[in-house]
Each structure stands twice: as C-alpha cells, then as structure tokens.
C-alpha cells in the first residue's frame, strides 16, 4: 500500500483508503472511494498536479491532495 502520488505514470491501482478529512467532497463525488480502480496517467512537470482516471472519470488533482489517498497497485496483466 502506498500513497497515490508514488505510483508511476501508467500504473493502475485500487483505492484502499482515503483520509476523508483532507479530501474535497467533490473528489469523493467523482468516485474517489475505496474499492474503485484508479490509474495515474500523467504528471505535470515537478510531478504535480497528477492526471488520473478513477473508474471512467478523468481528472487532475494536486499532489497535496493525492498523498491522502492510499492505493494498492495492480500487477500488470
């Protein structure tokens, strides 16, 4: 298990837990919930913000928020 921003671009993972205190409700409403699949697609320069896919939703968040999302990387199939 590792915080989201430590994934490598292109890597997929399952959301394990979220620190609800530190996340905007909007992100949760967009599907950032434990059990959902998440993929880190791109980094902007300096690895911030992060371009993600959560289920079928594509969005960008800042690193400061990403570190409150714990994920379990999926082994490439």
């Amino acid at each position: 298990m590792l915080p989201l921003h430590q994934l490598a671009p292109g890597q997929k993972a399952i959301i394990e837990s979220i620190e609800t205190e530190s996340l905007p409700l909007k992100l949760i409403e967009m599907g950032c919930l434990p059990g959902n699949e998440i993929a880190l697609l791109y980094w902007a320069p300096f690895r911030d913000p992060l371009y993600l896919r959560i289920e079928e939703v594509h969005l960008a968040i800042r690193k400061e928020v990403a570190q409150h999302i714990m994920v379990k990387p999926l082994v490439d199939d």
Binding site: L23, P24, K26, L27, M30, P49, Y51, V57, H58, L59, A60, I61, R62, V65
Partner: peptide, 10 residues
C-alpha cells in the same frame, strides 16, 4: 479550504 479538482474531459 477548497481544493483543486479539474475534470479532464475527452
């Protein structure tokens, strides 16, 4: 406190 969440539409 409010955060940066941007949808990346197709």
């Amino acid at each position: 406190k409010s955060y940066f969440v941007v949808e990346m539409p197709n």
